[in-house]
Amino acid sequence: MSAKILIVAEHDGARLNPSTAKCVSCARTLAGAEITVVVCAVDAAAVAAQAAQLEGVSRVITLENAANQHALAAVLAPQIAALAAPYTHLLGPSTTFGKDLMARIAGLLEAPQVSDIMAIESATRFRRPIFAGNAILTVETSAAKLVGTVRAASFEAAASGAAAAPIEKASVAAELPTHTRFVSVSAAKSDRPDLQTAARVISGGRALGSAEGFKILYRLADKLGAAVGASRAAVDAGYAPNEMQVGQTGKIIAPELYVAVGISGAIQHLTGIKDARTIVAINKDGEAPIFEVADFGLVGDLFQVIPEIERLIG
């Protein structure tokens, strides 16, 4: 039996989130898989068109409903569960959107879920990190239907520009709950690249000392076209907003260049950067564990080193 995979698209109403293209890449590693993307929206046209162009996608289904204005798991899950019958696998990204939603779908279907898939070995066999990435587990399922979230950092985005796959409007008879209501979202507006897709990331830790202290990182980041991240300690202390946290319980990223500034390198932080191509550590303590994973380590005071780097790159 060949795999039929349904991927739940993440989007903001206008643009497809890059994590969806990574789910497609993940699904494509399963030879012969037939890949369908489902877009839940009020008006799905623009996002569906983008999904239809991803290489490997054979069909896009849209579920349009006024209730889909905000991505509420309790509202989306019954719609997707109602579509699930023909599929062997339902995948979504390991983002807060996907983690919140896919497990609710798994609950409705009473199907097992594999979280944070980093490799598909066969239609029934998967690899995933556990214990904050300190062990890699291979799991095998006997279930006929499986839900999964895809660890985006493990996959390149599927290319866009393929001949557009057909787009079909679907409607499902699921009853949608009203017990969950969107109130607001506050997202810091930033012109910097998105942390999850940026090629370069500079992160600051507790050592930055204040929100004011973080400014030296923003200045350098802007010169390099880099995104800025933070350790949990820096976020807890209010030096940086929560969406900047990198690590086991923050964002898992895979930039070309990661610069850890005044970050000690706790395992929970390192989990978030394991797939970075090159890691640079700047820390005044030569014994800090971050140096064990750094490709380039510089022992020094960040408040001297960072301005100097900025000067040197002009």
Binding site: R181, S184, V185
Partner: peptide, 14 residues
Amino acid sequence: TREVDAGLETLEVD
């Protein structure tokens, strides 16, 4: 208030 990738989202639930 929920910590989501974009920032902070607020929901009201019964």
